[in-house]
Design a protein around this nucleic acid. Sequence first.
RNA 1: GUGGCCGUAGCUCAGUUCGGUUAGAGCACCUGGUUGUGGUCCAGGGGGUCGGGGGUUCAAAUCCCCUCGGUCACCCCA
Length: 419
Amino acid sequence: MADPIFRAPKGTHDILWPESARRRALTAVFADIVEGAGYTEVVPPMFEHVEVFHRLGDATDVVRKEMYDFLDKGGRHIALRPEQTASIVRAFSEHRPTVPWKAWYEGPNFRYERAQKGRFRQFDQVGVEALGPEDAHLDAEVIALAWLFYERLGLRRVTLMLNSLGGPLDRARYVEALRGHFSSDLDALSADSRTTLAVNPLRVLDSRRPEDADLVAAAPSMLDHLSDDAAAHFERVQAALDSLGIPYMIAPRLVRGLDYYVRTTFEFVAEAFDAAQNAIGGGGRYDGLAEEMGAPATPGVGFALGVDRTLMACDAEGVFDAPTTTVDVFVVDTTGGDQALSLTDELRRAGLRADRAWDARSMKAQMRAADRSGAALAVIVGEAELESGMVALRDMRGDAGQETIHRSSVIDTLLARLQ
RNA sequence: GUGGCCGUAGCUCAGUUCGGUUAGAGCACCUGGUUGUGGUCCAGGGGGUCGGGGGUUCAAAUCCCCUCGGUCACCCCA
């Protein structure tokens, strides 16, 4: 292939129509659902002081090796956001809105890592964050909203994985139990997992390396280490999901990559596509994060859904198709182009979606362009029509054929036909 | 950061094993067949420094080395 001079940087790509339109439609579906549930949009900056993201946990890969950071001209240490929860909670801490504060967002995130299927250096997420209430029903609400979103898209093969990490103290006790378990048979662990064990024992549960499988399967369960409070909260979340008719699988080994999670954690897995990255969304509770950002202690719960991966799942299930056209009418003018110029403008002013051909090409070439545009109707102006003050209106989709109408009635006719 | 696979027209690929006439196909695009009418069909046409660099050879898309890029997987995550 002849190499272009420039190409999109590693791990990034251009999204051309119609995929771009599909993404916009997906975001619109999401916005419709969450705004209708009382969530308001927040648009945080795409970069923050790097310390904001250090609150995600110094042991996480996101912070340790995937940060897209740089010094700006003022010497500030800046990082492109790897996710948006930290930014939203920072904004909460900065503006102190009254609680409950229910926010939603969409937009790109950045992580410096090697790209593969479903994993990019710039990727879009949509998500919600709800701060204030400690109510387990709020955990259920955000899960239900994500569930509704998948339903609206037409996705059917999504599994909700649910776990509880307990409170901070439960979590610490559990980490010790895990450390003990894995340390008892270090030789059986892969080298990578031994390294992980030293940094963050929870992460070992995530290992996909076959040699670790037995030891991971035999590991103690988080659910046996929950305090009474945490266990009660988890019970209430499950009861709420049950009453809402949302199916889930308890996943005691579901560990999420960010250290701020406590109590409820969840993940949405697409069963329909076989990539290694089959998690299309995830979230959980982060009751300590607001305090870490300098706000009064405020519980929070939320999720982020990967737009790219969700669309891949839609592809795998053959749902949520891309649009096939952007215009309804196409203007063909073989009299030099002045008619196309004025007619197209009139149609657009009347609210019609209209396009036209260029360069005064032949009737055949213009009709081909009309066909390709996907427009349902073509308005044709040739010499004969120009002289008689008429235009030809041709059905490009069905078999309604072609009729000749007065030019002055073209807008009314089109509006009626496209109704 | 580590490993596997792959780079030939805008796209999907053949040709590379056993180097050898002007490097091919389908799709897409343009023109014509149709002196006004697309989607089917027919004919013709434009478009490629065979990712880049170096080497071996009379001769390299084809063999060797380096490099860049893509992709998939690990790590980890959306």
